[in-house]
């Protein structure tokens, strides 16, 4: 199919972009990598009147450590997340998740900010930001504000960003020697959207884990923190029994159903993912992230 007529404007500066998306005269969508938006337009599932192209805004491509946090500009491409040594060193969870994001051609264009702003519940980076306690910086004509990942993902393709706001950048804490991460995803084929998966972060403290954050994805309308399971994993040395107890907390969570993967199957995969992630957090040397 061909997309419906749409006005295209390329923003020259962030201020220009903000003015364009604040304009009330037309329904506007921001175009970054276009890997989700363009198919939606082509399938006529979305028909905005105006596209604001932010791809020339160089300041949204920053990737640097500032005050103990890795700042990732909204336009940083998935490929860079997957391959930049800085990311691998200070935010290894993101580097580990990146190869699961679609295929190389898509990773070359798709952007980190775009993935978060699109908020597909089956995609990898929203869950990672939740596990990493990320902060999203949103900008509008009236100023900037920071929203924590916990509050950013509001629903299916819904975020806390207002229509006049642009996601500028995201920051995550720099990993320490004691940081532990795990990423497990189940999909039918390499690069497919997840049937279920988990992005997990914790801090090792002797034989215990603290600050456990387990972000499940692919199972609900948003990535969700398995807080009860996290609390159990923090409650003592991570043994098989403790993991079993943590996994059992997933019995009560809401899991979506679909024609291609039923609710029971997704819940089961979430359990397996959590089990594998928990063991990987406790014994990182034995971790295998497929």
């Amino acid at each position: 199919m061909k997309l419906a007529d749409v006005e295209y404007v390329r923003a020259d500066t962030v201020e220009h972009a903000l003015a364009l998306i604040a304009a009330q005269d037309a329904e506007t969508r921001v175009l970054a990598g276009g890997q989700s938006l363009m198919p939606l337009l082509a399938m006529r599932l979305a028909a905005p009147a105006r596209l604001v192209d932010i791809n020339r805004l160089a300041e949204l491509e920053r990737l640097e450590v500032v005050d103990g946090r890795l700042v990732i500009g909204a336009l940083v491409r998935h490929h860079r997340i997957a391959t930049d040594p800085l990311v691998a060193r200070v935010a290894p969870l993101l580097a580990r998740a990146a190869p699961h994001v679609a295929h190389p051609a898509i990773r070359n264009r798709g952007t980190f900010g775009g993935s978060l702003a699109h908020a597909d519940p089956a995609s990898e980076f929203p869950a990672c930001t939740l596990a990493l306690n990320a902060e999203m910086t949103l900008a509008s004509m009236s100023g900037r504000r920071t929203v924590r990942a916990d509050a950013f993902f509001e629903g299916l393709y819904q975020t806390a960003a207002r229509p006049d706001e642009l996601l500028l950048e995201v920051s995550v804490p720099v990993a320490t020697e004691a940081s532990r991460f795990a990423f497990v995803e189940f999909s039918r084929r390499n690069g497919d959207y997840a049937l279920a998966g988990i992005a997990a972060a914790a801090t090792a403290d002797g034989d215990r884990l603290t600050g456990v954050r387990l972000a499940l994805f692919g199972i609900g309308d948003t990535p969700v923190l398995a807080s009860e399971a996290a609390a159990i994993l923090e409650s003592g040395p991570v043994t098989d029994a403790l993991v079993k107890q943590a996994v059992a907390t997933l019995d009560g969570i809401e899991v979506r159903d679909s024609a291609t993967a039923g609710e029971r199957y997704r819940r089961h995969l979430a359990r397996v993912a959590l089990k594998r992630a928990a063991l990987a957090l406790a014994r990182p040397e034995a971790a295998s992230c497929r």
Partner: peptide, 28 residues
């Protein structure tokens, strides 16, 4: 292993896209 056109009991195709109708690809 992968391919199946899924219909509901009303005769509606449920997975008519390349994202949902799974073709085998090299990594598999």
């Amino acid at each position: 292993l992968l391919e199946e056109l899924l219909y509901d009991s009303d005769g509606q195709l449920l997975n008519g896209s390349m994202a949902d109708y799974l073709l085998p690809m090299a990594p598999e």
